[in-house]
């Protein structure tokens, strides 16, 4: 992974330029890591349980059981509470598309998945505070729905 090399090279450069500063940088890194680790642990526990409750087969089922409007809302909710890396999410989106699920439902799932973080709430709250984290995630949810609707309009899946 290139991140390792970049970090290593920068760290070496920094070390040769100024040992004291580099030591301070590592101390800052350590302190920041300690600061976030309790919320991080809580988040990991959430992740492990949510991944258990929402395996891929179940997600496909949740996105495909009612009428179109219900499915869009369900997709947004499932996307908001689950978490998965892009290399899992987009192949899944590809499967959904091939099984005939509309772009609007897929969009509402993948965009909330990216933008709304229920599981990451404890981590985010230790930086922004609970209130701002809540506001930010509600705004993100609304933006995700707007964008999903625009995608639905573009692909002719909803007609005004």
């Amino acid at each position: 992974m290139w991140v390792f090399y970049v970090t290593g090279i920068l760290l070496l450069l920094s070390f040769f330029a100024d040992k004291k500063k580099t030591k301070k940088a590592l101390l800052i890194a350590y302190k920041r890591f300690i600061f976030i680790s309790p919320s991080f642990l809580i988040m990991l526990i959430f992740v492990s349980i949510i991944l258990f409750l929402f395996p891929q087969e179940k997600i496909i089922m949740y996105l495909n059981f009612g009428n179109h409007t219900v499915n869009v809302i369900m997709a947004a909710l499932v996307g908001s509470i689950t978490i998965m890396p892009g290399f899992v999410a987009f192949p899944l989106a590809g499967i959904l598309k091939n099984s005939g699920i509309s772009f609007m439902i897929i969009a509402s799932f993948t965009i909330t998945l990216m933008m709304v973080g229920t599981i990451t709430f404890p981590v985010e709250a230790s930086y922004f505070g609970k209130k701002v984290t809540l506001i930010r995630n509600i705004i993100s949810f609304i933006i995700a729905i707007i964008v999903a609707l625009l995608i639905g309009l573009y692909f002719g899946e909803i007609i005004i």
Partner: peptide
């Protein structure tokens, strides 16, 4: 994460 935090530390000093 460890890389990210080290990069953040370097950012803060430099």
């Amino acid at each position: 994460l460890p890389c990210a935090f080290i990069l953040i530390g370097l950012f803060e000093v430099w």
